[in-house]
Design a binder for these strands. Structure first.
Length: 403
DNA sequence: AACTCGGGGTT
DNA sequence: AACCCAGAGTT
């Protein structure tokens, strides 16, 4: 860009920048983002979607919606939000519930740490704050699962606190509006977007303003095919003026994710099938599945299945047949799994419960230690009492269909 | 600052 | 298929 005056923000522009020194990094008019408040809020009032959580200012319900909306699109969240609100209508009901019941409602939505953290945080709010969600950013953000975004979103919407939200929508809108050249998916870029978001925030109605920016990103300033003709900000949008909206935001290219191969074992004892619960933390934590594990290098899928059934359930089995093959894409790896029907070689499984008597009707694990904390034999019609992750749910459906 | 953590809607 | 979503916790 020689000769011409270029307002765009180069990718190497800044290592540090605060709201106060934005003017040193940006041309003077770049820092003045207040002009967008009126047209944006006006557009929002006219065009906003009718979403369930927009009918309340109750901080608990706002909180629940914002947690669900992390990395999850609005359309996917709506049914979960409605079910969750019905089952846990206030923070006391959530705090008093069993985690397994919370995961039951969350089943299939992914990122299950959100549910674990929300449940834990609800208990902390009840115990420390008598059920009142703190309107102080530091106190609220000290709760598990409450980061910069959740704190700003909930406190601005429910308590009118002037805190700027920075999510994928906000970063995309700002990147195009200001031609911000730093990658939106790099940690080091976060401060730039947060400072720009702080500079544009409407302190008179921060909750509405924050939602308006995000709504613009979702409906108009979309990742693909932005509808610039309908955008209330296009007149002063730099990438629109330069016909470069498609070039923003800039994104760091990530290498392809690796593939992981697993074996899964389905074994019946009489009419009951063995399921196991994953450890509370980590991938798919607290959810149920059929015994499964990685296939070692050079190991056959069948041998891996036999080994996994011995390691996880203390069961000696032989592989009878291949039930199905699973392909599932996670955030950081692709899964290919062979699902085998197994047969017990001997009838004593010392590490596994003989039946489901150790579990109550809700599927909670009150006597889990007595059965190695992992496994339980259940009849197929009881499978719906346990939260399964998506890949395991496919196997569950096959079993239900067959029985 | 990179990595981990799901699942699905859009294109 | 690739992209990306109202991100947060861990290392």
């Amino acid at each position: 860009m020689k000769g011409g005056h270029d307002d765009s923000i180069p990718g190497d522009a800044l290592s540090e920048c605060s709201v106060t020194n934005l003017s040193k990094l940006f041309p003077a008019d770049a820092v003045d983002l207040k002009w967008m408040q009126a047209p944006l809020i006006s557009w929002y009032r006219a065009c906003k979607r009718d979403l369930p959580w927009r009918w309340t200012k109750d901080p608990y319900h706002i909180w629940v919606s914002e947690v669900m909306l992390q990395q999850t699109q609005v359309a996917a969240v709506i049914p979960y939000y409605l079910k969750f609100s019905h089952r846990f209508p206030d923070i006391f009901r959530l705090a008093g519930a069993d985690l397994q019941d919370v995961l039951m409602i969350w089943e299939g939505m992914g990122y299950y740490a959100r549910a674990r953290n929300l449940h834990k945080a609800a208990g902390m709010v009840v115990n420390r704050h008598r059920g009142r969600i703190p309107d102080d950013p530091e106190a609220f953000q000290s709760l598990p699962g409450v980061g910069d975004y959740i704190a700003a979103a909930v406190l601005s919407i429910a308590f009118d606190r002037p805190l700027p939200v920075v999510d994928g929508n906000v970063k995309r809108v700002l990147a195009r509006l200001m031609k911000v050249g730093v990658p939106v998916n790099k940690t080091s870029s976060y401060k730039i977007f947060r400072n720009l978001a702080a500079a544009m925030l409407d302190h008179d109605d921060p909750g509405t303003f924050n939602q308006a920016v995000m709504e613009l990103g979702a409906l108009i300033c979309r990742p693909k095919n932005p509808d610039c003709r309908a955008c209330p900000l296009s007149g002063k949008c730099r990438s629109h003026q330069d016909k470069a909206a498609a070039s923003y935001p800039v994104r760091e290219i990530k290498p392809p994710v690796p593939e992981r191969r697993q074996a899964v074992g389905v074994v019946f004892r009489g009419s009951r099938v063995l399921i196991v619960r994953r450890p509370e933390n980590g991938l798919l934590g607290g959810l149920w599945e059929f015994p499964s594990g990685d296939i070692d290098n050079g190991e056959s899928p069948e041998a891996a299945c036999v080994r996994i059934m011995r390691e996880q359930a203390g069961l000696d089995v032989t592989v009878t047949s291949l039930l199905t093959r699973i392909r599932h894409t996670y955030s950081h790896f692709r899964l290919k799994a062979d699902v085998f029907i197994c047969k017990e070689a001997s009838q004593n499984g010392p590490m596994v419960a003989e039946n489901a008597a150790g579990f109550d009707a809700s599927g909670s694990t009150q006597t889990s230690e007595a059965i190695n904390g992992r496994g339980v034999w259940v009849s197929p019609d009881e499978l719906d009492r346990y939260p399964f992750h998506r890949a395991a749910a496919g196997v569950k459906s096959l079993i239900l269909t067959a029985s």
